[in-house]
Every structure is written in structure tokens, then in C-alpha cells.
């Protein structure tokens, strides 16, 4: 069922009652699992993610590494989308969107962590998506940052991320209900329904160092 985002221009309220700049409820926990080096649990609205970090550790049988790979730690990211995470039960493993997300997260953290302190080793980040309702990449990045803090991996900055979307300009919707707004409005922290309808971008940045990287997706 298509979502009618045009109602936004009438009340300036989104489908779940938020204004354009309001985030969903954020709940975070750290050190949730005793057997991992670092772990975190992050909820943003109905998106719920558990992240565990193991390492930096030497991976046995990983083969010889050359050049940059030998002198720096390698960041390995594995994103697991649980079968029960969505409305319909489906298994998503090795799917292209998951792989892209893994690469984005790995490259974001490779640039922020002090990987040169841990040659010959691997930092592996496991993300388990328990429930998905939009802003997956942003929540994954935030959860991974928390878990890495818990693991005590030195980093030059905390990576935080948020999704933002764009409402279609009222003039493109036709009719007169849009009133005077000719431009489209930005929306922060999209939920699953808005994400299906609107173009969105996930921005990631550091708190002090400015932009450290980011990944986004347009629908």
C-alpha cells in the first residue's frame, strides 16, 4: 500500500505524529553480553540492533597479509538480518543491500579507529538486526560505535549517524492543498514506511573532527 506523504504539507506532522526534526525514542545499553570484548544494544523506535565486537585479535589461519593489511588492523563487519526482524519472515543472507552496508560500516570505522596500533590483527564487528523499521544503516553505525567504545578500541572520533529524507515539494503533488510551500522539506530519522516512499540519505560524522565519511542510499 503506497504511503500518502502529501498529508505532511497540511499539518506539518508526519504519519507517526513527529515533526520534521524530531527523532524516535532512543534507547541504548552497553556491555550487554559478558562473553564479548564489547557489546551494545540500541533501539531507535522499532529498529533494534545488538552489536558485539571481538578483537583486536590475531586471526589464526588467516593467511599472510601484505603491505597496508599487515601493518594495520583489519575491520571485519558482519551484518545478520534475523528472519523474524521484518513483517514477513524472510531470510536475507549475502544479499546485496546487506553486503553494501557491511562495506560502508567497515570503511567508516577503518578511517576512524587507530588501526595502526594493531598490526596483524582483526577487529570483528557483528551486528544482529532483531527488528527493522527504517534507518538501518544509521542504527548499525551508532550501535557499532557504542560497542567499540565498550571494547576500548582507541579511536579518534565517535561516529554517529542519522537518516534524513526529503518530502516531495507540494507543487508536484497537484491541487491547491500544498499552499505556499514550493520547496521540499527535510525529515529526520525516517521510519520504515517513510523510507519506502521518500528519497533518503544516511549521513555519518564525527563529533569533533567533522565529516569522517558516510554512506547513503536513494530509493
Amino acid at each position: 500500500m503506497p504511503l500518502d506523504t502529501s498529508t505532511y504539507h497540511l499539518s506539518l506532522l508526519r504519519l507517526d505524529g513527529r515533526r520534521w526534526n524530531e527523532l524516535r525514542r532512543l534507547h541504548a545499553q552497553i556491555s550487554t553480553q559478558a562473553s564479548a570484548d564489547g557489546s551494545s544494544y540500541l533501539e531507535m523506535g522499532n529498529t533494534k540492533i545488538i552489536c558485539t565486537v571481538s578483537g583486536p585479535a590475531e586471526i589464526r589461519g588467516g593467511g599472510r597479509r601484505e603491505g597496508v593489511e599487515r601493518d594495520n588492523a583489519v575491520v571485519n563487519v558482519e551484518v545478520g538480518v534475523a528472519g523474524f526482524s521484518g513483517m514477513d519472515r524472510k531470510r536475507r543472507r549475502g544479499d546485496k543491500r546487506t553486503t553494501e552496508m557491511q562495506n560502508t560500516i567497515a570503511s567508516a570505522f577503518t578511517s576512524t579507529l587507530f588501526t595502526h596500533l594493531y598490526p596483524h590483527s582483526t577487529i570483528s564487528i557483528n551486528l544482529h538486526i532483531l527488528s527493522q523499521d527504517g534507518s538501518l544503516l544509521a542504527v548499525c553505525l551508532n550501535a557499532a560505535t557504542l560497542a567499540l567504545i565498550d571494547a576500548g578500541v582507541p579511536m579518534k572520533d565517535y561516529i554517529v549517524a542519522c537518516t534524513s529524507g526529503l518530502t516531495p515539494p507540494a507543487s508536484t503533488l497537484g491541487g491547491s492543498r500544498g499552499g505556499n510551500s514550493e520547496t521540499s522539506d527535510p525529515l529526520l530519522d525516517l521510519n520504515g514506511m517513510e523510507e519506502q516512499e521518500l528519497p533518503f540519505l544516511t549521513g555519518a560524522g564525527g563529533t569533533v573532527g567533522g565529516d569522517v565519511g558516510g554512506g547513503g542510499g536513494w530509493v
Binding site: Q33, A34, S35, A36, I50, A82, G83, F84, S85, R89
Partner: peptide
């Protein structure tokens, strides 16, 4: 469920 040795599992039934 978390066991005392730190192992943890989550099960979802659909």
C-alpha cells in the same frame, strides 16, 4: 537467554 558463562541466544517465532 544468557547463561552464566556469557553465552547468549535470541529466538524469534513467527
Amino acid at each position: 537467554l544468557c547463561f552464566a558463562d556469557g553465552t547468549e541466544a535470541i529466538v524469534g517465532v513467527k
